[in-house]
Design a protein around this nucleic acid. Structure first.
Lengths: 376, 376
DNA sequence: CTGAAAGCGCTTACAG
DNA sequence: CTGAAAGCGCTTACAG
């Protein structure tokens, strides 16, 4: 277990090898990086000397500074680091990016953005990377500002467009609109929305749209617009037809409680629109726990289409979004930026509604509509 | 989308800020790292100047070289990078390590060890890290040698003990012995072993123990010893009682085919010992597909106790190993090594057999034993 | 509380 | 094919 690789003391450097081998430092460097520029004899003499002295090879830190590159791509995540490996939406995203990063022979640096609820700017400021991907962090979060201040090539994912910054994302408004329109077409007129709270202010409980709009991230605002647009299209007033429950931030979300509270409202919603599948699945469990049935008593629509959505009972109707493709494009664009090439412009990534078994016509559409928010 | 953060040209450095602010470079450096060493006025003058010039803060590459540290811990994985986020044994391990790494305000650098089947020494050699964790890579793999040659603090996980190198792991021999003894106690006398192939030579098909021993990694050799020891304890000859099927390397393992081939042998094994739960679960599917029943026709024991083992039908009997704890200890030991402290010595981590529904007494124990390898 | 200066270990034009 | 030398951008004892 004894290890004494302290950097200080008797550390062997390239210069030592050069002296011992009777060669220039350039020659030793070339022996490792450009073998073709050396005679076979000189190269093997150098390598043997290095071996004999126990030289660990050119120091990556020095090489990085000299070359101005690191061989690492940073991914900044706002959730605790371990969640990156278990969050069902983060995982496919990072995998999509990892595939591109690995193919380019680069490493992937996971940069924790938060440390017990408070921003960890130190990691962001100190990370030695050739470029950064910021995944699903509220635009107004100090982390985003800190990353941008680094002036390193950066791609923002699921973020409001910022001038001169590459972004990858979906059309949240259109996606959400499709979800709401599906429910409207089934005859629903009274809705509950379950949303993730902002990472900045974790509002929790029933909230007014206006409050929500001012605290929530850009993509959620987009979805809210989409729902509203669908209702407007059906001649309904958003305010009269919709109740909104905001869960805490993404880590502690509590869709079950949200569903139960929304279902206790009168007039009772006949359909629940959740901002994520995780929330929707929790809502499903909450509804069932209350002794109600999905979709007979209430329809539920999710967002994301994570694997668990398809295997839920009943299988969840949801908006599919291409999580792995997001990662793929984020990394692909970033690599182009780093190389100084023209980055590809995939535009807004496609989404589509996947209709499964958690949605159906409301049980007594007429009476509910009568009691609820008929507007025409 | 336009971005031109090339390192070369008109890059603002700390020196530029110092000149513009009429301060020394030391003062500018302190403004960022040791605010207490500067007067309030000087510090804010410096920060304002930096802001005005668009200085992105001290360059991490230069800081790393100067300080001799990077703020990153490297984790070397042999599987393709995306697998790190979906492999059911890798995920809890990395999460365990990530928790410690994040708590220490460090970043996690994922270093791909292979690129399309061939070792990617370049990433290992070039990674700027304060220490490395090597997860579950065969000791004789060139990657391990490359990591060790770096002479950076290192912890090897699931590896043969190497002098002066910290390791974390379980007692594979004892764990495997427990699994085999469980089957022996149930009355089984005829076994099939399903093993992962070596990453170095991917043998595939029925193999002799001797062949396997020479190609497989240390932890699998340990398990083989454990199985053998259990059989010896029951007075059975390993060679006469056991058939072994080696799947390809871990990525392409094919437990279903392994099970089918083993079950086509005569005398037919009444129990299958798999070297991983993934293999065991595939074997389970393969057996069922052949029209046989588990555990009536054949018992199956896995290794690892991944979540899917408990939810399988029938639920899988398996050897539980503390995957997240492995990650926790690997990171904890590594941090101590980096800090020059005495690392903790958790010793071999505990495992235990979890008996569930995939094992039972053999249907016709006596006749099988008579036809098979009775030895006393 | 502040400044002048050395040096971390390499790579890479450049000249020969 | 090989060598001498500049310099990447910082941090940190050290002296004042």
């Amino acid at each position: 277990m004894a290890t004494r690789q302290s950097r200080s003391a008797g550390r062997i450097t390239l210069k030592d090898v050069a002296e011992a081998a009777g060669a220039s430092t350039a020659a030793v460097s070339y022996a490792y990086t450009r073998p073709d520029r050396l005679s076979k004899e000189l190269r093997s003499r150098i390598l043997e000397t290095a071996q004999k002295l126990g030289y660990p090879g050119p120091d990556p830190l020095a090489r990085n500074l000299r070359r101005g590159e690191t061989g690492a791509i940073g991914v900044v995540v706002a959730d605790p680091l371990p969640d990156t490996f278990s969050n069902p939406t983060t995982v496919p995203f990072v995998q999509g990016a990892a595939r591109v990063i690995e193919a380019a022979s680069l490493c992937l640096l996971l940069i924790p953005g938060t440390l017990r609820r408070v921003s960890n700017l130190k990691s962001v400021n100190g990370a030695a990377v050739d470029g950064m991907i910021v995944y699903s962090i509220d635009d107004r979060h100090p982390l985003v500002e800190a990353v941008l201040a680094r002036r390193v090539p950066t791609v923002l994912v699921d973020s409001e467009a910022i001038e001169n910054v590459a972004t990858v994302g979906i059309d949240n408004e259109k996606a959400a609109q499709t979800a709401a329109e599906h429910l409207l077409a089934l005859g629903h007129r009274r809705f509950g929305i379950i949303t993730i709270g902002s990472a900045l202010e974790s509002t929790r409980g029933l909230v007014h749209v206006r409050t929500l709009r001012s605290t929530v991230s850009a993509d959620l605002r987009g979805r809210l617009r989409g729902y509203a647009k669908a209702l407007r299209g059906a001649g309904l007033s958003f305010e009269d037809s919709v109740s909104i429950y905001s869960c805490g931030d993404s880590v502690e979300n509590d869709g079950a409680r949200a569903a139960q509270i929304l279902m206790s409202l009168r007039p009772r919603p006949t359909a629940l629109l959740a901002m994520s599948d995780q929330l929707a699945l929790q809502a499903l469990a909450g509804v069932v726990e209350s002794g109600l049935h999905v979709p007979t008593d209430v329809s539920i629509v999710g967002f994301d289409d994570i694997p668990a959505a398809a295997s839920a009972k009943p299988a969840l109707t949801t908006v599919h979004q291409p999580l792995a493709d997001k990662g793929f494009w984020a990394a692909t664009i970033l690599l182009a930026l780093i190389r100084g090439e023209q980055p590809p412009t995939p535009g807004t990534l496609p989404t589509h509604l996947v209709v499964r078994d958690s949605t159906a016509a409301p049980a007594r559409a007429k009476s509910e509509a009568g009691a609820g928010g008929r507007r025409e």
